[in-house]
Design a protein around this nucleic acid. Structure first.
Lengths: 327, 327
DNA sequence: TTACGATCTGAGCATTTGCTCATTTCATGG
DNA sequence: CCATGAAATGAGCAAATGCTCAGATCGTAA
């Protein structure tokens, strides 16, 4: 994960109220998008150079100050949602319009998923949401608008300590919690134990046991899904060695959810690596599981998870939906 | 409303069944805004000419399929909100960033107000909202996103029949009701009676009496505000003759809310025209009144309404807020 | 069937926009 | 105090965009 910290240069004032670092960007963006002014007009309005105006608008976009939403549901996507539900017995499905070949599927999926999650979090009734991690969820939470979800609880399905001892997995649940002002319960132990003794130790820790219990009783789980190709997240992030990855693939592993690896039928593998995950294996009880994922690389994993009934709801894109249905 | 039926023309194209033009526009807009594709790429992706792609995107914007929102609250506007509340004892204030001189203030105000109203309508608790009319509210409701507000009731503060017998004022509450799926109670009589007999007749009609009662017990009123200059809405829409307008101005009239005219101190005029409005005069009881309005022409009216304590909340733009505070 | 009007479509062109490069500014460290 | 490097700035240019005009297409009426 790239951790591009904005190179803050807080030379004296800890307080970031520099008169307008991004205020100006927001204002330029407002003038451009809402007012429909040309960059020249914006420049004049703000008393800056046309060049600067252009850069401000660009920056506002790249920093996510702009949120664009398409109001019109595209018929074809609705049809795909219906088809997905029928084909795989899902209770819910959302299909975002595709963005064409060369584009990262997440670029379209994330802004599409975010408003749906906002609605879920807007529920008045207090709920417990269990969250996975990964690049997908990370991208989605970045797109999430701040809504008041302070009555809810967020709990992690997975440990937050990576093999390099960094707490990078803390991020996702933290960011969710920030966005919706909810209490959050990360699982503050390594993702995977090195042996059964360690596993039992971790699971016996009170805060871990509590988190696991809370997670198991969640009203909804929201997870990503990982492929087992050469670009498998578990491998890239250092949870598996190349040899382990190969072995797991040989054992039939085609995908994973929260680090739990399953085969082409969506059956979890009986394998040491799998058995030492400290977190919760979904589905757990009658908790619905919503999965977010799209793209060619995730196709096999998604297909398996759907066949195995591991998930109850799916967020994906048009291309992936078509591919899943035609299989 | 043009009801363009899709003209099926399945010639040699590959997989695409012909789809509705609006779908295509939404798709093009999605590719453009979310995917960041160039119009050439969009054209290629959709198998159409680049001009068509351009037109589709333009159409999507003009038809309101695109909704842009700036996530970053601009510090200066927040400050103005604070100042407005302090200065005029308001319980709530919202200030939209200005769009510069040449632009209709509504162009910026409406997209800014709409999300706030969406939030109000998202309240779980069933509420009664009393609504005024006018171009301002009309523009705002056009920007409103469909949210489920079916537990609420909408009631009109003002009659819906114009002097020319058209029911044009029906539109605003109707459109609100459509957007949020709420039950609505228009006041189905002329805005103003011609004499006291007629007034009493109208008010004695059961459905009018019921609407008036409901309106008086509303949890919140949302109204526009009218100026009394030569472009006074009451005059333009034919409620007042030029002579009456002049006379009312001479009597001190500087503005009106729901057709009830008040003077520079925000005191309602004691005048026949004023006394024959069939609707409700705000504030009524302890119902909070939120007013939406901006622009130089409305400045005097707003100032008076604020001084007279007629309103409890204000939606306006930066320029107007500054002007109000500096007065 | 033909004529008509309205809309859709594509080409050309002026404007706007985004990008690169050279230069300036600014803050930090020597 | 200057040296250094990163970020900001402005100029110039190529690409993208939006607009207008003329021809094509389609539905409707004669």
């Amino acid at each position: 994960m790239t951790q591009a910290k904005p190179q803050a240069k807080p030379k004296g004032n800890v307080d970031d109220t520099d008169i307008s670092p991004r205020d100006l960007a927001a204002r330029a963006a407002w003038l451009s998008f809402v007012g429909g002014l040309t960059q020249d007009q914006i420049a004049q309005e703000l008393g800056i150079s046309r060049q600067r105006a252009q850069r401000l608008v660009a920056r506002a976009s790249s920093e996510g100050l702009i949120r664009v939403r398409i109001e019109h549901p595209i018929a074809e996507c609705l049809e795909l949602e219906r088809a997905l539900k029928a084909r795989f017995g899902l209770t819910a499905a959302w299909v975002s319009p595709g963005l064409g070949a060369g584009v990262d599927p997440l670029q379209g999926l994330a802004p599409f998923v975010a408003p749906v999650l906002e609605r879920l979090f807007s529920s008045e009734e207090p709920k417990v949401f269990a969250l996975g991690t990964g690049r997908t969820l990370k991208t989605v939470v970045d797109q999430l608008r701040a809504v008041d979800g302070s009555r809810h609880k967020l709990v992690s399905l997975i440990g937050n300590v990576a093999p390099d001892s960094s707490a990078s997995f803390y991020e996702v649940i933290m960011r969710f919690a920030e966005k919706i002002q909810a209490r959050h319960y990360p699982m503050s132990v390594p993702v995977a134990a090195r042996d059964d003794v360690e596993l039992n130790l971790y699971r016996s820790l009170p805060h871990v046991a509590a988190s696991r219990e809370l997670a198991k009783s969640a009203d909804l789980a929201i997870v990503g899904i990982g492929q087992m190709g050469d670009d498998a997240p578990l491998y890239v992030d250092g949870f598996l060695t190349a040899d382990e990855l190969t072995a797991l693939r040989a054992s039939g592993g085609v995908g994973e959810i929260c680090g739990h690896i399953f085969d082409v039928e969506g059956r979890y593998l009986d394998h040491p690596v799998n058995d030492r995950m400290v977190g919760v294996r979904v589905p757990e009880g009658d908790m619905p599981v919503y999965c977010i994922g799209a793209g060619a690389s995730k196709l096999a994993a998604l297909n398996a998870a759907l066949r195995g009934g591991l998930i109850d709801g799916l967020f994906t894109d048009e291309w992936t939906a078509k591919a899943l249905i035609s299989q």
